[in-house]
Design a protein around this nucleic acid. Structure first.
Lengths: 353, 353
DNA sequence: ATTAGCACTCCATCAAAACGAGTGCTAATA
DNA sequence: TATTAGCACTCGTTTTGATGGAGTGCTAAT
């Protein structure tokens, strides 16, 4: 059975009102709130139906109704359809972010941190941003330099301009010529190589060619391995965790503690990123309502995520975490514009570089 | 007026009891708790005196007493004196940390993060660790490498093995010979130079010698400047913020929100680091009780900090933040051993490297 | 100087009462 | 047939009052 026009209107009114107040809403309120000109009694009948259909819930007899997850879901889906076309103009906030992004100083980290902070400040919800994950892991550049007589520095650059350094201690001094040889050895063999293709046989071969300096090669390969490993766990930046205290339904000790831990550990948030990246709906925006979220500790929250894409297929996730009764409209449109800005800005930079 | 032996004993008993229970403690409790064999009435008289002297407080008439900040202060100072000599053995926890430190993979960041986490888990308080600050900022090594035809990579190493990289985009291709020249130019002029001595005149000279590639030099110098700037704001890692929820006196919305924000922003924590670094008491351990802390939002907490020192004069701070009634004894001795471990371990490494 | 004893204070807890928001149902109405 | 007015009823929240207990301060006795 489908909802008729009127039931839908009433459901929307209930949800809108609840989003604002956070209190169960009664029939009389709706009777005045809408332009349907219906008495509270009629509304009551309709509400009774809506409850039977599972869209709203009565916390207890003789209380108003609150939306169920199913109700929110309908509301959000509806909204997404209506808003589809008109990609909202870049708001003031987004313009500010754009500015930050253009000012970036090759320091992805600080940019993302700042973005998370800004989003949190603008929305009054908690936010997270995952650093873009490198997909095709090719070694782009590898180099050994001598810092002093006993220390070598490895510099490793992988596709997507992820740069890592490592210090290596050497037993005996290494002269310029040997260093040059080692560098040539490393570069001719490894440059442009997908990381998966570096296997034991290859390492053995390199070591053999390095002769007495096999130990250095081993250390370098360890460093490369470390780069891969490090890339596997995604960097996630969060901000505005304290915002949860603005919503009483999340602010009791039990829940708050769990949520804060989740934000602090960040480990659990990777699940959210993974889920978002795999399950694409086309718009790149995803809404998890209550128990729909893949992160257990957030079962009393709603989460809206957007994936953004930079050059070279690097994808990241932006997430906004708030109470079930979050301002979906605002959050979704903010994320949409932000996402499109990110997508285009970085592509533009790609061209001009 | 000084406290006589008995008053001191009673005060200690009150504090100890309060640390455990968190409830105001009454005269009868003390009468049994101590080995003084005094009746509750006598204790009451003494407590009355102690209150007048400002060491304890009565939350309201007909409640027991709780320690005032002054009381805690006396207690802590007393404890520090008594415990001075016997540097407690490395406990199991500290041994674990020691292991982590030795396993470190040149990745200060992850080690410190893990240490903070471990401390938090062991103490049930919130923790923070500041990354060691470089004092003498000498350039140790600087290098340009070509990653591809349009991108150069700068690698900058400053004293204390802080390594930074930056990508530089170049307009026209640069051949090997030019690159070598530029590298020699940079190294001969800058290696070993204290960063403060790099001034405009010096930069102008370099640019002039670089000729057509003055632009590249400018970019490199910008990168160096960025390293200095970045070093100014201290990295701080925190953990166990959620622990505050274990102490009702900190867990109300207002306070919790403030504290969480403080931990998240980290900005405010630098004050704590600064204060700790400057005001040395000799032991390297400092205790801030309640309003004594330099961070406003922590006025209902106590903070114990330790400074540690690595090679080359790099100093950092470890802090433990908990309720006023924290287990000072345990916290201080944990920090003491940890500090001494850190101090020695790194120095040892220094020698053997 | 110490202690027993007692009156007094004040908080915490609990139950009862009053309140009020909101429902469901029925009978009247358009 | 759909809508509405009216009313009894439910149930959570707030208020009030009573009770108990923990602890103090003071006084008089040891």
């Amino acid at each position: 059975m489908d909802l008729d026009e009127r039931k839908l209107k009433i459901l929307q009114a209930i949800i809108r009102n609840y989003l604002e107040t956070g209190e169960p809403v009664g029939s009389r309120t709706i009777s005045k709130y809408t332009d349907l000109n219906l008495s509270s009694a009629t509304i009551r009948n309709e509400m009774s139906d809506l409850e039977e259909l599972g869209y709203i819930i009565q916390p207890h007899t003789s209380a108003g109704r609150i939306p169920s997850d199913k109700g929110y879901r309908l509301y959000v889906d509806q909204m997404m359809l209506e808003k589809e076309e008109q990609l909202s103009q870049a708001t003031q906030e987004v313009k500010e972010m754009q500015k930050i992004l253009l000012d970036r100083e090759d320091k992805m980290e600080s940019v993302l941190k700042q973005m998370a902070k800004m989003l949190a400040a603008n929305t009054n919800y908690a936010t997270m941003i995952s650093a873009p994950q490198v997909r095709g892991n090719k070694l782009k550049f590898i180099q050994l330099s001598r810092v002093d007589t006993r220390q070598l520095l490895t510099t490793i650059v992988v596709e997507g301009n992820v740069i890592k350094n490592n210090m290596i201690a050497v037993a005996g001094a290494i002269d310029d010529e040997t260093l040059l040889k080692l560098n040539i050895l490393l570069n001719t063999n490894l440059n442009g190589l997908p990381i998966e293709e570096i296997n034991l046989a290859m390492i053995a071969k390199l070591k053999q060619q390095a002769g007495v300096h096999a130990g250095v090669i081993a250390d370098v390969m360890d460093a490369v391995a470390a780069v891969i490993k490090e890339d596997e766990d995604i960097e996630i930046y969060t901000s505005g965790a304290n915002n949860i205290f603005k919503y009483p339904e999340l602010a009791d000790n039990q829940r708050a503690s769990e949520l804060i831990t989740t934000f602090e550990e960040k480990q659990l948030l990777t699940e959210l990123v993974q889920d978002t990246l795999t399950d694409e709906t086309g718009t790149g925006i995803q809404v998890y309502i209550g128990s729909e979220t893949p992160v257990q500790t957030m079962k009393d929250c709603s989460v809206v995520t957007a994936t953004y894409e930079l050059e070279e297929g690097m994808k990241g996730t932006i997430g906004i975490i708030g109470p079930r009764r979050m301002d979906y409209d605002k959050v979704i449109s903010t994320l949409k514009t932000l996402k499109s800005q990110l997508d285009t800005i970085y592509k533009k930079e790609d061209e001009q570089t």
